[in-house]
Each structure stands twice: as structure tokens, then as C-alpha cells.
Simulated assay, not measured.
Amino acid sequence: MSQPTPMPIPVDRLRLALPPEGLSTAELRQHRKGRLAAALRLFGRYGHEEGVSGHITVRDPEFDDCYWVNPFGMAFAHVTVSELVLVDGDGQVLEGRHHVNQAAFAVHAHVHRARPRVVAVAHAHSTYGRALSALGHRLEPITQDACAFYEDHAVFDEYTGMFVDDSAGRRIAAALGPRKGIVLRNHGLLTVGDSVDAATWWFLQMERACQIQLAAMAAGKPIVIEHADAVATRTQIGSDLVGWINYQPLHTSAVRAEPDLLS
């Protein structure tokens, strides 16, 4: 007698913390700030910190052209909710006692403006992202996880020095288009999401995919997953909701290990 086919479990019955609904503006603001502080701690834990480089921005739920961001010059390991800075689209500090990295807003503000549904933008000078960017390569669908980025990331194929002017920010936002990530040639990676959780997960996954691709290229010629299979896999694992779900163990581990981040 054959075994019955298992039925998939509906997402709403999974015992997972799903994106919050029905929050007031103040509650949603505090929620986003807490996720931002935790994401920055994780960036520090994974070594995605290079001096004063690297930043994650999250859109304020009330003021669309204002963003919460990590303080300039503060180690990711020291960031707390109360230390976060609120800036307007021009990078002017509206709330907080620290300065902000202006390079963050030469790019981040333009991405946020071009993508009104994007809540968070993540960028750091990670090791393998920089290595792949130095080759000017995009990610290839050579693993299941890399398929999340198949035809859903871009390469900004120029180097303009430090991103301190509006022109570079506009061009990067245009090159990113509707995608979830971009390889900035000779610079690093940038990802976006409809939550801090999704944007951070995509960054961590994009960095890991860069590492795996470089290792595979060094060992031989990687076998590329066929187009139809890569598209189907992306459909299954490439949404921001799936990114959110995958990220939850990391968020929980950060908060449990470093509860002071929420202060």
C-alpha cells in the first residue's frame, strides 16, 4: 500500500515569527529600529566591517524620505537602538547625537527614492563581495541558494571613487532597477528588501554566494543550473517573505546573545 502524499503546511501555521501586521506608526518605528540594530550587530559578527565603511538604512514608517541609519564611526558591535540616527533624504541629522556617513546617502537615498516599496538598503565592504566585484562578474546559478539572485541582481560596471555625489547615486539606483541586489564593480555589494530582515538576509546570502562562486572557479569550471530550473528555484526561495523567514534564526541569536542592542 502506497504512502499518502504529505500535504504542504500553510505558512500561517508554521511556528515562525512572520512580518508584523496592525502595528501603530510608533510601534512599527520601534520594530524597525530594533531590527536595524540587530542587523548591524550581525554584520559585525560576520566581519562585514571595514573602518567606518558599511551601513544599513531603514525607511521611517511615517516620513517616507527619512531613514534610520547606524552612527558614523561607531563599531557595529556597539550599536543600540538609542544610538541610531534619523536623517532626511539629504543626509541631514534630524534625530540623534551622532554624525552620519554621507557616503551612505549618496547611494541609499537614491535607491530608496527610486524604489518606494523598499524599506531597507544594506551595503558593506565584505571580503568576497569585493573580490567578485574586482572581476566585474555577476553571480551565476551554480548552487540552489545562488538561484535566489538569478536574473534578480545587476552589476554596476564602473568605478567612480568614493560615492559622495548625487550623480553616482542616481546611476547606481538606475542600474539596480527592480532587482534585490547589485555588485558594485571594484567596491562591493548592495541589497534591498521590504524589511530590514530581508535586505540583511540577501546581503549575507549574496556574500556567501560570492565566496562559493570564487571557490568553485578556483577549483575548476562550475556547472551552471539550467535557465528553467534556476527560474523555478528563484520563484521558490527568492521572495522577501522567504528571506524574512530564513533570517529569523539569525535575528533571534543576535538578540539573545546581545540583548543590550535593544536599549
Score class of each variant (00 low, 15 high):
143 T>D: 14
42 L>T: 05
11 V>L: 04
75 A>D: 14
208 R>T: 03
239 S>K: 09
116 P>E: 06
16 L>Q: 00
69 V>Y: 01
192 V>D: 05
229 D>W: 12
135 L>S: 05
227 H>Y: 11
63 F>C: 13
186 N>W: 03
172 I>P: 04
193 G>M: 08
38 A>N: 02
210 C>F: 10
114 A>K: 09
84 L>A: 06
95 E>M: 13
256 R>W: 02
214 L>P: 09
23 L>F: 09
30 Q>K: 14
103 A>M: 12
80 T>R: 15
195 S>M: 06
68 W>F: 14
208 R>W: 11
4 P>G: 07
228 A>N: 15
142 I>F: 11
59 R>Q: 09
61 P>E: 08
6 P>G: 07
2 S>I: 12
203 F>V: 03
157 D>L: 03
243 G>E: 07
252 T>L: 02
222 P>R: 08
184 L>W: 01
199 A>I: 08
151 E>G: 03
194 D>S: 09
69 V>I: 15
202 W>C: 01
149 F>H: 07
204 L>T: 06
217 M>V: 11
141 P>I: 12
79 V>E: 08
30 Q>D: 15
5 T>A: 04
216 A>E: 06
257 A>Q: 09
55 H>V: 04
174 A>L: 08
96 G>A: 14
96 G>C: 15
245 I>A: 10
112 H>F: 13
113 R>M: 07
2 S>P: 15
146 A>N: 12
69 V>F: 03
62 E>V: 15
222 P>F: 12
18 L>S: 04
109 A>K: 02
36 L>W: 09
155 V>K: 04
157 D>I: 00
242 V>T: 08
232 A>W: 10
96 G>E: 12
184 L>S: 05
178 P>G: 02
21 E>G: 08
80 T>S: 13
235 T>L: 09
17 A>H: 10
138 R>D: 11
165 D>P: 00
159 Y>S: 03
16 L>S: 00
184 L>H: 05
200 T>S: 10
244 W>Q: 05
49 E>D: 06
238 G>I: 14
191 T>Y: 00
263 S>Y: 08
253 S>L: 11
176 L>K: 00
127 T>F: 05
37 A>W: 09
73 G>V: 11
246 N>P: 00
112 H>L: 09
78 H>A: 10
216 A>C: 08
